[in-house]
Design a binder for these strands. Structure first.
Lengths: 204, 204
DNA sequence: AAAATAGTTGACCGATTAGTCTAGTCCGCT
DNA sequence: AGCGGACTAGACTAATCGGTCAACTATTTT
């Protein structure tokens, strides 16, 4: 064992940043290196291709966000409130980034996977895998809400996937229209999709 | 006036085909020309850039689909049935294309706009404009449903935009997971989002 | 027939692309 | 002190990129 470098992390950070802001196709290896303060040689020492780097960057990003997700979807929080908090968090975070870069960037997983899905199976499968983990937060919350009689959801997985799709569609629209307010509508959409019984509806 | 050529249409057709299947970034002008049977010079005789060609291709595609949309959302059809028919149509069309190319391609407008939104204002604005027209089908159907007491939708535009987002999210998921069945869930999501009153719910 | 318009051709350009390779530097280990 | 593995430097390649251009052909108008 010799010296340890933080270059790998600098590279994944730079890659996700650039790809999220722009796109996978227009983000060059040179640009990633420049942002990370790395030379070509270092890049290809750590990653065998741009595609592999991207997959690694998405995994690294998941690991970074996991703690926050665990907190937002903690079983200590009333199940339906978890969604409200999560959507608020996403809204605030995207708005914050917009202050810096001028754009609502949406969900990086969705943007990247949409772009490369038919051409890069490594990246596509990585997104698929991460989503499989992420959707569990939705499933648990829905199952808990059902158990408490707040909603009628005999098939929590199906409901979770439906809401997941609506969530991503809203983020995509927000990116394209560069309008953070679209995300505010998510709470009501969630209530509608989940079929929240009127008596238990929360104030927005 | 001298000879008339169908090259312009061949180019927009080829471009949309390739970009939809793959992505904007990975679709080269050379590839578009080859598919259209054109040479570089012809391309730049008709279009001043790849970006302009893409915008033109999206507009041309809209014009092609408009007739079908008018039929699907005809006021002669019960309003909520219009959505069911539309989602069936989209499902069948995407499944048909999958038979040929192996992939569920989703909505080209969404894929392209997501990819270029922060970098190509011409294409982004084109998608925005087309969506403004397309969403009217949703708005009218929702307004009609409300007038007939089938749903409670005092703000048809907002409902339409919410459903539009869910629709696009589902198509994006279908593309990424290459799973046409996800689209089947759309009918139920639409009923949930629109708040269809149980008495008027249709059989699926 | 000739002029004018509409469309086509393909060579060419400089920039950029992802990726390779060799030589070297740095640093903890014994 | 010095070995050996971890990492960096940066020149290099072959291919491809979007875009230009001047010469050419085909068709309609006069």
């Amino acid at each position: 064992m010799a010296r340890v470098s933080d270059m790998k992390e600098r590279l994944t950070d730079a890659a996700l940043d650039l790809i999220w802001h722009n796109s996978y196709g227009t983000t060059s290896v040179d640009a990633i290196c420049e942002r990370a303060g790395a030379k070509k040689g270092s890049f290809y020492y750590f990653f065998k291709s741009k595609s592999q780097l991207t997959a690694a960057a998405l995994e690294a990003d998941w690991n970074k966000n996991k703690t926050k997700m665990d907190a937002l979807f903690s079983p200590t929080i009333p199940p339906l409130e978890r969604f409200d908090r999560y959507f608020d968090y996403v809204h605030d975070r995207l708005a914050e980034i917009q202050q810096v870069c001028g754009s609502i960037l949406g969900c990086p997983l969705l943007s990247i996977a949409t772009e490369v899905s038919t051409q890069d199976e490594v990246v596509r499968a990585t997104v698929d895998r991460i989503w499989d983990r992420k959707i569990n937060y939705f499933v648990s919350a829905i199952r808990d809400a059902h158990a408490q009689g707040l909603i009628e959801a005999p098939d929590p997985e199906a409901k979770a996937r439906a809401l997941f799709a609506c969530y991503h569609g809203t983020l995509a629209q927000a990116r394209i229209q560069n309008d953070v307010d679209l995300i505010c509508g998510l709470k009501q959409v969630a209530r509608d999709v989940l079929g929240v019984k009127p008596a238990h509806a929360m104030s927005s």
